[in-house]
Design a protein around this nucleic acid. Structure first.
Length: 362
DNA sequence: AATGTCTCCAACCGCCACGTA
DNA sequence: TTACGTGGCGGTTGGAGACAT
């Protein structure tokens, strides 16, 4: 049995708000406020609207000091920077833009800013995801053409953020090689950095917990790394390494993971610490990450580095059993420009995935 | 002028987190 | 501890207007 609806769908009015409805809601809100109960509010003022609808109308349209349209270049930059850093957390982004609502920013991003930044991505993606033509479908499964093997289910947000990061930082970033070279770590917006402080501290502790809980089974699910690759793997960890070495000791396991002492969950752990300590000084973390990327997605993966890097685990989960991994194309199309112009070249994600994994010294 | 397509954005939907009884 | 009510959030939809053919 599902959740009871918040209102009687049959008796509430939907669709655009009339000026009269706006006036009623605005007058009441300015005098009394929502009173902590949006659900009851429409009954009080005689509106045949769902409480949620009232709340949305007030927050997105009627609330004082709202700005509509006309985003400035500074706002564009801030939105983009935050989106790359923290993803589609529109409410957090909106909190940094006075007078803007999350809905406004979301719409602006989806309709204008994304296109401005990603340029021709849409066309390319459509080509990759469209059903194969009769000619294409005649290709042997082992063919080298990978353009029709774009992994289903890869989140648009993850792709966009990766592409944006590439376009804004150019090839000097070497795609995702910052996993192996902390100097190339993405530069987070100061706000995002603050937001991520706590998340990373928690994430690292959670990661250690996750390793202790999940490590024994993780390698058994890593299907695409053969024995020689495993042998050349940094520190060549055996299953349950952390659990064996640090039985029940999350802090010690965390230190092993990160290369520096883990803070308590409430202690700030900033991005610079990642850079200073470096992933290349924490081969065990690389191993765990590799394992995660090759074979496992889920809560552990989501927790490992926080949602700001969640797309790595998405890629990893897509890699398992996916034929698209084997071939590399499109390097020549990779952007060498940090321009935000609409004609920016498409970032070829397959090439980036490949380069990401090269960062693990395969 | 008619029709089709695209763009924009307000509004809706469903899920999740949190507080409370 | 659990169930429930509510707020908050992000993804998605649908309609109106703009634009192209």
């Amino acid at each position: 049995m599902g959740r009871a609806p918040c209102c009687d769908k049959a008796s509430v009015k939907k669709g655009p708000w009339s000026p009269e409805e706006d006036a009623k809601l605005k007058a009441y809100m300015e005098e009394h406020g929502a009173g902590g109960n949006w659900i009851a509010l429409p009954h009080k003022i005689g509106l045949k609207r769902c409480g949620k609808s009232c709340r949305l109308r007030w927050l997105n349209y009627l609330r004082p000091n709202l700005k509509h349209g006309g985003f400035s270049e500074e706002e564009d930059n801030l939105i983009c920077s935050l989106y790359i850093s923290i993803g589609s957390r529109w409410s957090i982004i909106a909190a940094q833009l006075p007078g803007r609502t999350d809905n406004d920013i979301k719409n602006y991003w989806n309709t204008k800013l994304k296109k401005k930044l990603l340029g021709r991505c849409k066309d390319s993606h459509a080509r990759r995801t469209s059903p194969p033509t009769q000619e294409e479908s005649k290709e042997p499964a082992s063919g080298t053409n990978t353009t029709d093997r774009f992994p289903d289910g890869l989140s648009a947000s993850a792709l966009e953020r990766m592409q944006l990061h590439m376009q804004l930082h150019g090839p000097s970033c070497s795609s995702l090689a910052f996993f192996n070279n902390p100097a190339l770590l993405p530069k987070f917006h100061p706000l995002a950095d603050r937001i991520l402080h706590t998340q990373h501290a928690d994430a690292i502790n959670n990661a250690a917990q996750g390793v202790l809980q999940h490590f024994p089974e993780t390698y058994s699910t890593a299907t695409t790394v053969d024995a020689s690759q495993r042998a050349s793997f940094p520190s060549n960890p055996e299953p349950a390494t952390l659990a064996d070495t640090y039985p029940g000791d999350v802090d010690a396991a965390t230190s092993s993971l990160t290369g520096f002492s883990s803070p308590s969950s409430s202690t700030a752990l900033n991005v610079e610490q990642y850079s200073d300590a470096g992933f290349n000084e924490a081969p065990t973390l690389q191993a765990e990450l590799h394992d995660l990327l090759c074979g496992k997605k889920g809560s552990f993966g989501q927790q490992l580095l926080g949602d700001d890097l969640d797309f790595f685990s998405e890629f990893g989960s897509q890699r398992e059993g996916a034929a698209w991994w084997g071939d590399v194309d499109g390097f020549e199309e990779k952007s060498s420009s940090s321009s935000w112009g609409s004609s920016a070249p498409v970032i070829q994600t397959q090439a980036m995935f490949q380069e990401l994994m090269m960062g693990f010294n395969f």
